[in-house]
């Protein structure tokens, strides 16, 4: 004869034990894991008229299937869909870029997006204030001068072109005819925009990010993260400027310069 009470208790214990094992083994998948991850990289004035910008983005990971479309959307509002001023870009390019029209002296919010067969995802918003004039370094410098470790120099000899590109594909070299020499290395003849120095100058060779730049002060490379401002002027000259680029000589030193070529 069966003791029903005992049987019931035993079964209940077994049920609870199995349920506990089941729930503890539960996986934590989310739908976001299926989607591409995308970043908005940069926005820079493009051309001479100030009515367009060059924007770039990068797909960090494709998600669970191949990326089908990449592009940008932007607005003067902070909340907008990817259909708002949508520009599709080359899905095979990394980073992917687009040239989009803007109105001077307006503030825009940009975002990049990428889609695959599961859906789409967007980057964070990037705020940009379009201006009529090109951007320049936020330090007070005269053209073709440098301030290196507290000493002012006049850069009387300025040259540019591919033959001055020890790194990258386009170089600018400025010196005072003596012992102060500044070299700036770009990937191509730079359009107006804001560039950022890389950690290692040799990384510029084959670098596909058009907004990477390298600087050498008397043969010493400036640390990563220094902003370099390029403005293509109306007279077809180009002005390159940067402030307080840190580099290592016998001690930590800082240099600023404004060069027009």
């Amino acid at each position: 004869m069966i003791n029903c009470k005992y049987t019931g208790l035993t079964l209940l214990r077994l049920l609870l034990l199995t349920a506990a094992i089941d729930f503890s083994s539960c996986s934590k998948h989310t739908y976001d894991q299926t989607l591409p991850s995308v970043s908005f990289l940069s926005v820079a004035p493009y051309g001479l008229s100030g009515d367009s910008v060059l924007i770039s983005g990068r797909v960090n990971s494709p998600g669970l299937s191949a990326v089908q479309f990449v592009g940008f959307a932007y607005s003067t509002q902070t909340s907008f869909s990817i259909l708002n001023n949508q520009f599709l870009a080359n899905v095979n390019a990394s980073p992917f870029t687009a040239i989009v029209p803007v109105s001077p002296d307006s503030t825009y919010y940009f975002k990049a997006f990428a889609s695959n067969s599961y859906g789409y995802s967007c980057s964070n918003l990037f705020k940009y204030a379009a201006s009529i004039s090109g951007s320049s370094a936020p330090c007070n410098l005269s053209s073709n001068t440098a301030l290196d470790n507290g000493v002012n120099y006049t850069l009387s000899d300025v040259n540019s072109g591919g033959s001055y590109a020890t790194f990258g594909t386009f170089g600018v070299e400025a010196d005072n005819g003596a012992y102060e020499t500044i070299n700036i290395f770009f990937n191509g003849n730079p359009p107006s925009g804001t560039y950022t120095t890389v950690a290692n100058l040799s990384a510029l060779n084959g670098d596909t990010n058009p907004f990477d730049v390298g600087i050498e002060i008397n043969g010493n490379s400036v640390n990563a993260g220094c902003k370099v401002y390029v403005t293509v002027n109306a007279n077809k000259t180009t002005t390159v400027s940067f402030c307080s680029g840190e580099y290592q000589s016998y001690e930590n030193q800082y240099a600023s310069a404004k060069i027009t070529y």
Binding site: T30, Y31, L35, Y120
Partner: peptide, 8 residues
Amino acid sequence: TQDTIPTT
């Protein structure tokens, strides 16, 4: 797993 699933 989530409230809305983004589609294109």
